[in-house]
Design a protein around this nucleic acid. Structure first.
Lengths: 231, 231
DNA sequence: CTTCGTTCTCGTCAGGCTGACACTACCTCG
DNA sequence: CGAGGTAGTGTCAGCCTGACGAGAACGAAG
């Protein structure tokens, strides 16, 4: 077998929506290289693991065992990164995964070695993680257009307003609540009504929904207002 | 550095449209394992290469040097595959790339060691290549919905009918020529008219177009007729 | 040269979806 | 109880799409 050998790791772009902002889970590196810098959580692939196994294991380690499995989240492969000089220690290939999670309590880890950061404020991560994060955020933005995965950012039961705030945070836009409601409720299988309502806040109580079996939005929900300039 | 080491290769899903059928470039393996089986073309990543470099190099080697660069094709990363048992020789991670090419003359290689096969007829490829091919075809189908990349399957100048046959071959559907023409010509930047026409065939001569700068279709061109069954 | 078949291209029209927004329902707070 | 805020419904014009009709421009056949 020709070819030189690589260490293979998995890096996670873990996104959530907190306080109307899209946030990413970052860890502060305690070792060289890039000691002290923020970076994406990740780890190496164990001998008997497939890539998705490693990603799920690392995710559980970061957000707390159990939570990863219980929670209505989403985990998908993003891309492979293997530039020859991306790691000063040698040839390292990293397969990035994108995780979308509801807003959880703060990570198990005590101390300030990891935490949520608004993606708009993130800069200068270790390795090529800034690029990986950028790719992950863009993938999330596209995914929301064509799929029902926005619900992965929500707890098991949520209101339409919760769901709309996800779109607004990820896309950094404002959406008309009435048109949004019409769109998501008229898409078969997107939302399952529970006939229960949230109470306590101001205004009319909102109905709670659960995720339905639908996975794709047809037609898509478009970010741009379909710019059709002169041809 | 923890973690065991992997050999890292690049496998190519090279697609084209020939005679109204979506075809993939396959090579017949001359070595163990899977000697004699068909598989995707591929190779290992050289010490100074990034993944895209390896993919471009392998693509040139397969379809003929020069052609890869000249031609109006497309090359993008698909996904990483690293199941522990995917290669009996040991731990091998493969990053698959998807290439979309116009219908070329047959590959340089003499003999029958490689060639185009209709994807509908392909089965039982070496390794996990059947799965990789399936993922690549599905990616191509989605890509045609939201982008202008169908033109990557066409030569530098092509008619609207050429472009429509690409959609019909990839999606295995029929599209109304009049509505298709309206859609692609009304999308700014998709097609640039040349004011020249093809002649020789039956019927009214069709105008030749070149690819425009547009990359995305807004709104998308949908495969399914927007099934909106009862909720 | 005329006719016919084929293909390209432009039009038409009904229906669906979207953006914009008026209006009602219902809760909390003072 | 009234004010204010949020949830949900209804309306309407405009764009886009699917389903055609019909003319334009060629080659082939008679």
């Amino acid at each position: 077998m020709r070819g030189n050998l690589f260490a293979v790791g998995v890096d996670l772009v873990v996104l959530t929506v907190r306080g109307d902002e899209l946030c990413v889970l970052l860890v502060r590196r305690s070792e060289q290289p890039f000691e002290g810098s923020w970076g994406l959580p990740g780890g190496f692939v164990a001998p008997d693991e497939d890539l998705a196994d490693t990603a799920a294991r690392e995710l559980s380690a970061q957000i707390g065992s159990g939570a990863a499995g219980r929670v209505t989240g989403h985990l998908e492969q993003l891309a492979g990164y293997a530039a020859p000089d991306r790691d000063p220690r040698g040839r390292v290939l990293s397969v990035a995964f994108l995780a979308l999670l509801p807003d959880l309590p703060d990570p198990d880890q005590p101390g300030v070695t990891s935490g949520w950061h608004p993606v708009a404020d993130v800069a200068d991560l270790a390795f090529d993680h800034t690029r990986i994060l950028s790719d992950g955020v863009e993938r999330a933005r596209e995914t929301l257009e064509y799929t029902t995965l926005a619900a992965a950012f929500c707890p098991p039961e949520f209101t339409i307003t919760d769901l709309r705030r996800v779109y607004e945070a990820v896309w950094r836009t404002e959406i008309d609540p009435r048109n949004f409601s019409r769109k998501v409720t008229s898409t078969p299988g997107f939302l399952i009504p529970t006939n229960r309502h949230v109470t306590g806040g101001p205004g009319r109580p909102a109905q709670l929904f659960r995720r339905g079996p639908a996975t794709r939005l047809h037609p898509a929900m478009l970010r741009e207002p379909a710019v059709r300039a002169a041809g």
